[in-house]
């Protein structure tokens, strides 16, 4: 019997929740938005999501198998990548494009860097950015409640404007009330339109302690404050609400910017990161040639994560702010003395 005792470093017990449990919670939190997408855009919203999930899991499995690495499909992160990529695509996107996007997201952005935890960009957003090479297909917006058929065939797609198209021209969206935008009854990507459904998912994630509300709050509040101070429409308050509920802000703030792998781990880093995302989003929306800035602002901030973490390490236990200041001054004085001695 005694040969069979395990010996390892402490601790010998682990919290019940592992990676898979956390990822499962994210999937659960995305379901309300999926349902909203199906209601607004028809069953094709579901088929696009399913295709995306199936292929991103397939690519993850295939790559790990090919490279003789451990199988990581069980952590469910590929499912989330698939769902999130689908959520930021127009419902009319051809299925083959979704598959190519998955390939790019899972293999190039995630696995080539070593898989979960190692990639420096959000795979879903990078996949979407890559898919913008098909600009026309990626900016074909069908009106809400148009119920696109699962197989488009030769059907002519009726297009319409999204709230962002109006807002890029400095106008409040016509014929769309703020409530409509909040509920998601507007054109846009298949999982981004319903701020309400995304908010439900976000609250669920915060309650389950999967994410901290820091990043989403900083992000959304920054956008709200900026658009309130610098409105383009004639009604300050309406403009702010329209800016908050249009486009992918809620999807980005709650699900993309909080991606563990590509967001800072320190509290202060997270605050700066959220604010940075908000600033860049408004800049791109106001001054860029793209109407939407959420995905690029998050991708840009992804690149700064290492730096943000490094500069926000905080104060050591047992050292007060004054101690730190004093140490800094002493170091400065020593340096100066050294310089003078050299001269």
């Amino acid at each position: 019997m005694e040969q069979r005792l395990k010996v390892s470093s402490s601790p010998h017990i682990r919290a019940p929740r592992g990676t898979r449990s956390l990822m499962l919670d994210v999937i659960i939190a995305l379901i309300p938005s999926l349902i909203a997408g199906i209601i607004v855009f028809g069953w094709r919203a579901l088929t696009v999501t399913v295709v995306s999930v199936v292929f991103s899991v397939f690519f993850e499995w295939g790559y790990r198998k090919m490279m003789k690495k451990s199988c990581s499909v069980g952590d469910l992160s590929a499912v989330i990548t698939g769902m999130l990529l689908a959520f930021c695509l127009p419902v009319t996107v051809p299925y083959w494009m979704v598959v190519v996007g998955d390939l790019f997201a899972v293999v190039l952005v995630k696995q080539l860097f070593g898989g979960i935890g190692k990639n420096f960009m959000n795979p879903a957003l990078a996949g979407r950015a890559f898919m913008f090479s098909w600009a026309a297909a990626m900016s074909t917006w069908v009106p809400a409640m148009s119920k696109s058929p699962i197989f488009l065939g030769g059907v002519d797609v009726v297009t319409s404007a999204t709230p962002l198209t109006y807002m890029a021209n400095g106008m409040l969206p016509e014929g769309m009330s703020t409530l409509q935008m909040f509920l998601g009854n507007v054109g846009g990507c298949l999982g981004e339109t319903s701020a309400l459904a995304l908010l439900i998912g976000g609250i669920y994630l915060c309650i389950r302690k999967v994410i901290s509300p820091r990043i989403p709050l900083c992000y959304i509040i920054t956008v709200a404050v900026l658009t309130f101070i610098f409105p383009l429409g004639n009604n300050r308050f309406d403009w702010m609400l329209a800016s908050m509920f249009s486009g992918g802000l809620f999807l980005g703030a709650i699900f993309m910017a909080t991606d563990y792998v590509t967001s800072p781990v320190t509290a202060r880093g997270q605050l700066i990161y959220g604010i940075g995302c908000g600033l860049l989003t408004v800049f791109i929306r106001y001054f860029g040639s793209y109407v939407e800035g959420v995905s690029y602002s998050i991708l840009l901030m992804n690149i700064c994560v290492w730096f943000l973490d490094k500069t926000s390490m905080g104060i050591r236990f047992g050292v007060s702010r004054e101690d730190k200041k004093r140490a800094k001054e002493a170091a400065k004085a020593a340096k100066k003395a050294q310089k003078e001695a050299a001269v």
């Binding site: 592992g18 990581s72 935890g117 781990v265 236990f317």
Partner: peptide, 23 residues
């Protein structure tokens, strides 16, 4: 509850629980 292939997902939970404010 140990697993065969421990992998960091950068969730940062270790930082929030560290009583010594370490990273």
């Amino acid at each position: 509850r140990s697993v065969e292939d421990p992998t960091c997902i950068r969730c940062g939970k270790c930082i929030t629980v560290c009583p010594m404010k370490l990273k």
